[in-house]
Amino acid sequence: MAAENVQTFTDGNFEASVLKVGGPVLVDFWAEWCGPCKRLAPTVDALALDYGGKVTIGKLNVDENPYTTVKFNVRGIPALLLFKGGLVVDQVVGLMPKEDIKKVIDKYL
């Protein structure tokens, strides 16, 4: 039940929707079988509401998008990777409270 302003990233659109975007982009790497990922989903939805317009936020399913998952060496989920100017500038691995994730994002605004 992703919020409307949470995008869906794929191997196909990653270049255009994440790497070529000027402002910060938060990507939630997840999978259907990952319990903690499901716990994190409402937090990601809430972040998308809080940062509407300022930070692009979306999810990438690691099962369906192996190319991007391997390219950024994601080997543990949930993982939130923060991109800016096409590069990974920060990351949060595992479950974290919303306030802590905001502190990471706010460094790049």
Partner: peptide
């Protein structure tokens, strides 16, 4: 290396190996 090969959750991350 947490999340890049180090993990505390086999059911979450076993898939990547």
């Amino acid at each position: 290396l947490m999340g890049h090969g180090v993990s505390t959750c086999a059911t979450c991350d076993g898939y990547f190996f």
